[in-house]
Design a protein around this nucleic acid. Structure first.
Length: 837
DNA sequence: AGCACGCCGACT
DNA sequence: GTCGGCGTGCTC
C-alpha cells in the first residue's frame, strides 16, 4: 500500500500581486500535477482564473487553509524552466509582479477566466410568480425565459443599470434566480470536414444502385457523389486505400449544395470526420535567390568569429547594405545545427515585405508572431511550437525552426534557441510602455540569450548609444557593413534654410522651391517620392486670432489635433473627440485658425501643388487595420502611388527600389524634443528616413527643410558622421550622468487630484533623496501634466552602475510599499519605469 | 490590480 | 425603496 501523499502547488496567477498562491491538489491528480502546466483555480469570492504551476511540493501552507485546484488544463508543460527564470528575472529587474509578466507572456486565448452566468431557478421556470415584481426584476425574468442563460453584462444592458449584481443577488435570495461561474474556452481549433464513403456503399453494386436512384429523383445529390468519386480517385492515385480515402467537404460541396448534401448525410452515404487542420499553410514555396556579396560574406564571417568567442555582436550596417541577407544566412546556419532562431523586429516593421522574404527562404518552417494576428492564430503558434512533432497524416502542423516576431515573441515556449536576432536594435518601440512589465525587448533578449546559451546579434544602421558604447568597450563584437548593396550609394543631401526661403518668398506653403522642383522631376521620371512629417492629423492645434485661446482636451492637458478627414478635433492621448469650434470659447471671436503641420495638411498641399501625382498617406489613421496597411504597401510597391506622405511609419522596414527623393518637411520638430536623448533620437530618425532614398543604381536625394541648417545633428546626419556624433554625445552623457553611464529609474506619480499628486510626489521624492542624495531629479511636471484625468508628476533616479542594483531595488521596493500603506495616498499610484526611453 | 461588500446620499 | 458612488479590505 502507498502512503497517501497530499500535494500542494504554488501557482502564478495573472494578477498584480506580489506572491504565488498555494493550492491543494486533489490526490487523484498527484501524477498529473507538474511545474509549467496550466490549471484553473478558484480565486477570491467566486472567480475562476487560469494559473500556471510554478512548483509542486508537500508543505501545507502556514496561516491559512489552501483551496483545492479546480482543474488541470495541460498534460505537458507549456512553460519551461528557462522561461520561468526569464519571467522571474523580468519581474525583479523591471520591478513588477510575476503575475503581470504572465499576463504579458501568454496570448489571451490561453488565459481563460470565469464569467458569472445567470439562469432561472426551477421554481420560476415551472411557475413564474410575477406578482409584485419590480419592473427590472420582471425584465430580467422575461429575458431569461427567451434566452436561458445571461451574463451579468447582458443583464446590465437589458435593465440599463451599471452594476446589476445587487439586483441579481436580491433575486437569488428570493429564489428566482441561480448563479454559476462558467469558463468558456477562448480558443477554437480550426476544423476541416472530411468525407469518406460509408461502408454500406463500398461495393460497386450498391453504389451503382444508389447513383441510379439519385439520377432519377435527385440529380444534384448525384452530382455531389460523382464529384466525390472523382476526388477520391485522385487520392487513390496518390496511394490511399479506397476505404480510407477522405475528401475535403469544401472541395465537392458548394454553398448552394447544402440541402442536397444534407439529404445525402441523412441517407448515411458519407462518414464524416472533423479534423483540426490549423490556420497555417502547410506548403509555402521556397525560392530565395539572393546570394551574399563579398562584403556580406565578410560580415557573416566576422559575426561568426565573435560568436565562437562567446561574444554578443552588433552588426552596424548602413541602410540598404543588406543586413537582412546576413541575418537569414546566419539563421539558416543555426538551424542546420539543429537549433531554433528567434528574429525580433519592431512591431511596425513586421510588414508583408519582411515576412515574405523570410517565408521565401524558410517556407513553413518560419513562424510569425505579432500583435496584429488574431488570438486564434497566436494560440496556434504556441501549440505548433509545443507539439513540435504531431504526425497524424491529416493533422500535420508546421514545425517552426525560426520565429519572426515583435517583442512579445520573447515569451514563446521555444526550447532550443541557438540565435536571437534583434533587428533595428535602436528602435524605441522595443520598450513596452504600458501596462507593466515595462521591459525593453532588446535588453530582455540579451538576458534570454544567456539563459539559452544562445548567440545574440543586434543589427541597425543607427545603433543606440548604449549598444554603441558596449561595442566600443569591446563588451560586444562589432561588425560593420559599409557599402550599400549592389551599386547603390548613399543619398545626396540638400539642406534648405526655410527662413531664407521665406525671406525670398519662395515657399509654396510648406514646400521650398528646391523640394518642389525635385518632386516634379521625380514624378515626371516615374520615380517615387517619400515625404516625412512626424505628426498625424491636419493641424496639431487651433488658435484664436484675437485672444490666443486654444481648445484642449477635457481629460488631458494637451491641445486637440484637427483631423480634416473626420472633421473632428481629437486628443491623441485619450481619444476624446469633438466637433471643431466655430467661435472662441473664451472671447467669442470667430477668427479661429488651424496651426501647425500634420500629415493630412501636407497631403492636401501636395494634392494642390502636384495635381497629377497619385498621393497616399501612411500614418496610424490610414493603417489601423492590417488590411489597409497591406493595401497601401502593395500600391506603393506596384507603383500605383507617386508620393507617399507619412510619419515615423515610413522609416521602418520599408525597402522600395524606386524611391529617389525623400523630403523632410520640418526637421526642427524632430530636433526640439526636451530630453537627454533628443540628439541621438533625431540623428537616428534623420538617417533612417534618408535611408529610404535611392535603393538601386541611382543616387537618391534627401531634401531637408529646417530653420537651423547648421544644427550639429543635421550636419552629422548628412555627413554620415556617426562616430563624431556619438563621441560627442558620450562625453555629455558621462559629464551629466546619463545612460549608458548610469541606469535611470523613472517614477511616475499619478492621482485624480492635482494637489494630491503634488503632495505625494513631493514626499516620495524627499524620501528618495534621503536615500540617494543628489542622484534624484524631481519632482518635475512632464510636458503633458494630465492624461486621462490623472495628474502626473515625475521623479528620476540615476543609479550608478557600480552600485549593487539588487540592493537599490530592494530599498526602492520597501519605500514603495511604505508609501502604498499610507491612508491619505490610497488614490495615488506610483509607476516604476526602469531604463525608460 | 480586480472584486465584493457596506455605507451614504440623491432621487422617485 | 432603489440606485450609484466611493472607501475598505482581501485574494492561497
Amino acid at each position: 500500500m502507498h502512503e497517501r501523499i497530499t500535494k500542494f502547488a504554488d501557482i502564478i496567477l495573472p494578477v498584480a500581486l506580489p506572491n504565488l498562491f498555494t493550492y491543494r491538489v486533489p490526490s487523484e491528480w498527484n501524477e498529473r500535477i507538474i511545474s509549467g502546466i496550466r490549471v484553473i483555480v478558484p480565486f477570491g469570492k467566486n472567480k475562476l482564473y487560469t494559473g500556471i504551476v510554478r512548483a509542486v511540493h508537500e508543505k501545507p501552507p502556514i496561516g491559512y487553509e489552501a483551496k483545492y485546484l479546480d482543474s488541470i488544463l495541460d498534460e505537458i508543460p507549456i512553460i519551461s524552466e528557462i522561461q520561468f527564470k526569464f519571467w522571474e528575472w523580468m519581474a525583479l529587474y523591471y520591478m513588477c509582479h510575476i503575475g503581470e509578466v504572465m499576463q504579458a507572456a501568454l496570448p489571451s486565448g490561453l488565459k481563460i477566466t470565469s464569467e458569472t452566468k445567470v439562469i432561472l431557478s426551477e421554481a420560476t421556470k415551472n411557475k413564474p410568480d410575477i406578482k409584485n415584481l419590480h419592473i427590472n426584476e420582471y425584465k430580467i425574468i422575461e429575458a431569461l425565459i427567451v434566452k436561458e442563460i445571461l451574463s451579468l453584462d447582458e443583464i446590465a444592458k437589458i435593465i440599463a443599470i451599471k452594476n446589476p449584481l445587487a439586483i441579481v443577488k436580491r433575486m437569488v435570495d428570493k429564489g428566482f434566480l441561480l448563479l454559476y461561474e462558467s469558463i468558456d474556452e477562448k480558443y477554437k481549433p480550426k476544423l476541416t470536414t472530411y468525407l469518406a464513403l460509408n461502408k454500406l456503399y463500398q461495393d460497386e453494386t450498391t453504389l451503382n444502385e444508389l447513383l441510379n436512384q439519385l439520377e432519377k429523383k435527385a440529380y444534384k445529390q448525384m452530382e455531389i457523389v460523382m464529384r466525390f468519386l472523382q476526388r477520391r480517385q485522385m487520392e487513390i492515385v496518390k496511394g490511399h486505400d479506397k476505404t480510407t480515402a477522405y475528401v475535403k467537404k469544401k472541395d465537392i460541396v458548394g454553398t448552394d449544395d447544402t440541402s442536397a448534401f444534407n439529404a445525402l448525410v441523412k441517407k448515411n452515404v458519407f462518414d464524416i470526420t472533423e479534423i483540426d487542420t490549423g490556420r497555417f499553410k502547410l506548403e509555402i514555396e521556397t525560392n530565395y535567390q539572393k546570394v551574399l556579396n563579398d562584403e556580406q560574406q565578410k560580415a557573416l564571417f566576422e559575426v561568426k568569429q565573435n560568436f565562437s568567442l562567446k561574444k554578443h555582436c552588433l552588426l552596424h550596417g548602413l541602410t540598404g547594405s543588406g543586413k537582412t541577407e546576413v541575418y537569414l544566412q546566419l539563421a539558416a546556419d543555426t538551424i542546420a545545427t539543429g537549433k531554433q532562431v528567434l528574429y525580433l523586429l519592431p512591431e511596425i516593421a513586421l510588414t508583408g515585405q519582411i515576412i515574405h522574404r523570410v517565408q521565401q527562404k524558410f517556407g513553413t518552417r518560419a513562424g510569425i508572431y505579432h500583435s496584429r494576428m488574431s488570438n486564434h492564430e497566436r494560440v496556434e503558434v504556441w501549440q505548433n511550437i509545443l507539439n513540435d512533432c504531431t504526425s497524424n497524416e491529416l493533422n500535420e502542423r508546421p514545425h517552426f525552426d525560426i520565429l519572426v516576431g515583435a517583442r512579445s515573441s520573447l515569451f514563446l515556449p521555444l526550447h532550443n534557441v541557438g540565435l536571437i536576432i534583434v533587428d533595428e536594435e535602436h528602435d524605441a518601440s522595443y520598450k513596452q510602455q504600458d501596462p507593466s512589465p515595462r521591459y525593453h525587448a532588446r535588453d530582455a533578449a540579451i538576458y534570454l540569450a544567456q539563459l539559452y546559451n544562445a548567440n545574440i546579434l543586434l543589427g541597425t544602421a543607427t545603433p543606440s548609444l548604449e549598444t554603441y558604447y558596449l561595442a566600443k568597450q569591446d563588451k560586444f563584437g562589432y561588425v560593420k557593413l559599409e557599402n550599400r548593396f549592389g551599386e547603390a550609394v548613399l543619398p545626396h543631401w540638400q539642406i534648405i534654410d526655410t527662413k531664407e526661403e521665406e525671406r525670398n518668398k519662395t515657399m509654396h506653403q510648406s514646400f521650398s522651391e528646391p523640394l518642389v522642383n525635385a518632386i516634379n522631376t521625380a514624378v515626371s521620371n516615374h520615380e517615387q517620392v517619400i515625404l516625412f512629417q512626424n505628426r498625424r492629423g491636419f493641424s496639431p492645434y487651433t488658435e484664436c486670432q484675437e485672444c490666443a485661446w486654444t481648445p484642449t482636451c477635457l481629460n488631458c492637458d494637451v491641445s486637440l489635433t484637427y483631423h480634416k478627414t473626420l472633421h473632428l478635433l481629437r486628443c491623441h492621448y485619450c481619444g476624446y473627440s469633438t466637433k471643431p469650434h466655430s467661435e472662441c470659447a473664451s472671447c467669442g471671436s470667430s477668427h479661429l485658425q488651424f496651426k501647425g503641420l500634420g500629415t493630412e495638411k501636407i497631403e492636401e498641399e501636395v494634392e494642390i501643388l502636384f495635381p497629377t501625382a497619385r498621393v497616399a498617406r501612411l500614418d496610424l489613421d490610414t493603417s489601423r487595420s492590417r488590411q489597409a496597411y497591406n493595401q497601401l504597401m502593395n500600391d506603393f510597391t506596384e507603383g500605383n502611388i507617386d508620393i507617399l506622405i507619412g510619419t515615423q511609419m515610413v522609416t521602418k522596414g520599408l525597402d522600395f527600389d524606386n524611391v529617389n527623393v525623400v523630403g523632410i518637411i520640418n526637421a526642427d520638430q524632430v530636433l526640439k524634443f526636451p530630453d537627454f536623448r533628443s540628439h541621438e533620437r533625431a540623428f537616428q530618425t534623420l538617417v533612417q528616413v534618408s535611408g529610404r532614398a535611392g535603393r538601386k543604381k541611382k543616387q537618391g536625394k534627401v531634401y531637408l527643410q529646417t530653420a537651423q541648417p547648421y544644427h550639429p545633428v543635421i550636419q552629422f546626419a548628412m555627413n554620415n558622421a556617426i562616430d563624431a556624433l556619438y563621441e560627442k554625445e558620450l562625453l555629455e552623457r558621462v559629464q551629466f550622468h546619463y545612460p549608458p553611464f548610469v541606469r535611470i529609474i523613472e517614477f511616475n506619480i499619478l492621482s485624480p487630484q492635482r494637489e494630491l499628486t503634488d503632495e505625494a510626489a513631493q514626499l516620495f521624492t524627499e524620501a528618495l533623496k534621503a536615500m540617494f542624495k543628489d542622484l534624484v531629479l524631481g519632482p518635475q511636471t512632464p510636458s503633458v501634466g494630465r492624461i486621462k484625468n490623472q495628474f502626473l508628476k515625475r521623479t528620476i533616479l540615476k543609479v550608478k552602475k557600480e552600485w549593487p542594483y539588487k540592493k537599490v531595488r530592494e530599498e526602492i521596493s520597501q519605500l514603495l510599499h511604505h508609501f502604498s500603506q499610507q491612508n491619505n495616498f490610497k488614490k495615488v499610484k506610483i509607476q516604476v519605469d526602469v531604463d525608460p526611453v
